[in-house]
Measured scan of single mutants.
Amino acid sequence: MDVFMKGLSKAKEGVVAAAEKTKQGVAEAAGKTKEGVLYVGSKTKEGVVHGVATVAEKTKEQVTNVGGAVVTGVTAVAQKTVEGAGSIAAATGFVKKDQLGKNEEGAPQEGILEDMPVDPDNEAYEMPSEEGYQDYEPEA
Rank of each mutant, 00 (worst) to 15 (best):
Thr92Met: 09
Tyr39His: 04
Lys10Phe: 06
Ala89Lys: 09
Ser87Leu: 06
Gly111Val: 03
Thr75Leu: 06
Val70Thr: 03
Lys23Ala: 12
Thr72Lys: 05
Ala91His: 10
Met1Thr: 15
Glu139Leu: 07
Val15Asn: 00
Asp121Thr: 11
Asn65Asp: 09
Tyr133Phe: 04
Lys96Thr: 08
Phe94Lys: 15
Lys96Cys: 09
Gln62Pro: 00
Gly68Leu: 10
Ala30Tyr: 08
Glu28Met: 09
Lys32Glu: 07
Gly47Gln: 07
Glu139His: 12
Gly7Asp: 00
Pro138Ile: 04
Glu105Lys: 03
Lys21Ala: 11
Gly41Gln: 06
Gln109Leu: 12
Lys32Arg: 12
Thr92Asn: 14
Ala29Gln: 10
Ala140Ile: 00
His50Glu: 08
Glu83Gln: 11
Lys97Gly: 04
Val52Ile: 03
Ala76Trp: 09
Val95Asn: 08
Ala140Tyr: 14
Thr54Phe: 14
Ala11Ser: 14
Thr44His: 01
Glu13His: 03
Lys34Val: 03
Met116Arg: 05
Val49Ile: 12
Leu100Pro: 06
Lys32Met: 02
Ser87Glu: 07
Val82Thr: 15
Val55Phe: 15
His50Phe: 05
Ile112Gly: 05
Asp98Ala: 08
Lys102Trp: 04
Ile88Val: 06
Lys96Trp: 06
Ala90Gly: 06
Gly67Trp: 10
Ala91Cys: 07
Glu110Gln: 04
Lys97Thr: 06
Ser42Ile: 15
Gly132Tyr: 08
Lys58Thr: 09
Leu113Glu: 14
Ser42Met: 07
Gln24Pro: 01
Ala27Trp: 12
Ala19Asn: 13
Glu130Lys: 12
Glu130Arg: 13
Glu137Tyr: 05
Lys12Ile: 00
Ser9Lys: 13
Asn65Val: 14
Pro128Phe: 08
Pro128Tyr: 06
Ala11Asn: 01
Gly68Arg: 15
Val16Asp: 11
Gln79Ile: 02
Leu8Ala: 07
Ala90Trp: 11
Glu123Asp: 07
Ala76Gln: 05
Met5His: 00
Gly93Cys: 04
Thr72Asn: 07
Ala124Gln: 11
Val77Leu: 10
Thr92Trp: 10
Gly84Pro: 02
Glu126Ile: 04
Ala27Phe: 14
Thr54Val: 01
His50Met: 08
Asp121Phe: 10
Lys60His: 03
Lys6Asn: 05
Ala85Asp: 04
Val74Met: 15
Ala107Phe: 04
His50Cys: 08
Ala107Thr: 12
Glu61Thr: 14
Val48Trp: 13
Ala91Ser: 06
Thr54Ala: 10
Gln99His: 08
Val15Tyr: 06
Gly67Asp: 02
Glu139Met: 12
Val55Ser: 02
Gln62Gly: 04
Val66Phe: 06
Gln24Cys: 02
Ala69Glu: 01
Ser9Tyr: 15
Asp98Asn: 15
Thr33Ile: 02
Val48Leu: 06
Lys6Glu: 07
Tyr136Trp: 08
Glu130Thr: 11
Val40Ala: 10
Gly47Cys: 01
Gly36Tyr: 09
Gly31Ile: 13
Glu126Thr: 06
His50Leu: 03
Ser129Ile: 08
Glu83Leu: 04
Lys43Phe: 04
Ala19Phe: 09
Gly93Phe: 10
Gly68Gln: 04
Met1Lys: 00
Glu114Arg: 12
Leu8Ile: 13
Ala29Thr: 08
Glu57Tyr: 15
Thr81Ala: 01
Glu114Gln: 15
Ala17Gly: 03
Glu46Lys: 12
Ala11Leu: 04
Ala11Gly: 12
Asn122Leu: 14
Ser87Lys: 05
Ile112Phe: 07
Ala19Ile: 06
Asn103Pro: 04
Gly67Phe: 03
Lys60Trp: 02
Asp121Arg: 09
Ala124Tyr: 12
Met116Val: 00
Thr92Asp: 02
Leu38His: 07
Val3Phe: 03
Val71Thr: 01
Thr72Val: 10
Met116Phe: 09
Val16Lys: 15
Ile112Cys: 05
Ala19Gly: 07
Tyr136Gly: 08
Ala30Cys: 08
Asn122Ala: 12
Ser42Asp: 09
Ala17Pro: 01
Ala78His: 13
Ser129Phe: 05
Ala91Gln: 05
Tyr125Ile: 09
Phe4Leu: 15
Ala90Val: 15
Thr59Glu: 00
Asp115Cys: 04
Ser87Thr: 07
Val15Phe: 12
Gly68Ala: 15
Met127Ala: 05
Val77Glu: 01
Val55Lys: 03
Ala90Lys: 15
Lys80Met: 06
Thr44Leu: 12
Met5Val: 06
Lys97Ala: 01
Val49Met: 11
Ala89Ile: 09
Gln134Arg: 04
Ala29Asp: 00
